[in-house]
Amino acid sequence: MTNDKNLVVSTDGSALSNPNGPMGWAWADHEGGDADAGGASNGTNQIGELCAVLQALRAHPGERPLVIETDSQYAINCSTTWVPGWKKKGWKNSQGKPVKNRPLIEAIDREIQARTGSVRFVWVKGHAGNTFNEKVDTLARGYATAAGKGDREGCLPIEGWRSLLASPYAQGTQVPPAVKAELDGGPQVLDELGRKKDRLDQEEQKDLAETAVESEAVDAEQAESVETTADADNGTPDPGMADGQEDEPSRDLKDTSDTDTVDQDTKNSGARGLRASGRIRITPPPSGSSMFTGHDLHIVGSIDIDADIDPDGYVTIKEAPFRLHAIEVED
Score class of each variant (00 low, 15 high):
8 V>C: 06
11 T>E: 05
13 G>K: 10
16 L>N: 02
18 N>F: 01
20 N>K: 03
21 G>D: 04
24 G>N: 06
28 A>S: 15
33 G>Y: 09
36 D>G: 07
40 A>D: 05
44 T>K: 02
46 Q>L: 00
48 G>T: 02
48 G>E: 01
49 E>D: 12
49 E>P: 01
50 L>C: 07
51 C>N: 11
52 A>M: 04
53 V>Q: 04
54 L>C: 05
57 L>Y: 06
60 H>N: 15
63 E>W: 05
67 V>Q: 12
68 I>Q: 04
77 N>P: 00
78 C>D: 03
86 W>C: 03
88 K>Q: 12
89 K>L: 06
92 K>N: 08
98 P>S: 04
98 P>V: 02
100 K>I: 13
100 K>E: 13
101 N>L: 05
104 L>K: 05
104 L>C: 07
106 E>L: 14
106 E>Y: 01
108 I>M: 13
109 D>I: 01
111 E>M: 08
114 A>Y: 06
115 R>K: 14
117 G>P: 08
118 S>R: 15
122 V>L: 08
123 W>F: 15
125 K>N: 15
127 H>L: 06
128 A>K: 07
128 A>F: 10
131 T>S: 09
132 F>A: 13
133 N>H: 13
133 N>S: 14
133 N>T: 05
134 E>P: 06
135 K>Y: 07
136 V>H: 09
137 D>V: 01
138 T>A: 14
138 T>F: 03
141 R>N: 12
144 A>D: 06
148 G>Y: 10
151 D>C: 00
151 D>G: 00
152 R>F: 11
153 E>S: 13
155 C>P: 01
156 L>P: 08
157 P>W: 08
158 I>P: 14
160 G>F: 10
164 L>I: 03
165 L>D: 08
166 A>E: 13
168 P>N: 02
171 Q>H: 09
174 Q>F: 00
178 A>G: 00
179 V>N: 04
181 A>G: 05
183 L>Y: 03
183 L>P: 01
188 Q>F: 00
190 L>Y: 03
193 L>Q: 11
195 R>H: 04
195 R>C: 09
196 K>G: 10
198 D>C: 04
200 L>F: 03
206 K>R: 14
206 K>F: 01
207 D>L: 07
207 D>S: 12
209 A>I: 00
210 E>Y: 00
210 E>R: 11
211 T>S: 09
214 E>A: 11
214 E>N: 03
219 D>G: 02
219 D>C: 03
229 T>G: 13
229 T>W: 14
230 A>E: 07
230 A>S: 11
232 A>Q: 08
241 M>H: 09
245 Q>P: 00
250 S>K: 06
254 K>H: 14
254 K>D: 13
256 T>M: 06
256 T>W: 10
256 T>Q: 07
263 D>S: 10
265 D>N: 05
265 D>R: 10
266 T>H: 02
268 N>F: 01
268 N>Q: 09
270 G>R: 13
273 G>T: 02
274 L>G: 00
278 G>M: 06
280 I>M: 15
288 G>H: 10
289 S>F: 12
290 S>E: 14
292 F>K: 05
293 T>P: 00
294 G>S: 12
296 D>R: 15
297 L>Q: 14
298 H>Q: 14
304 D>Q: 13
306 D>G: 05
311 P>F: 01
315 V>M: 12
319 E>T: 14
326 A>N: 07
326 A>V: 01
327 I>Y: 01
328 E>T: 06
329 V>E: 13
330 E>S: 04
330 E>H: 06
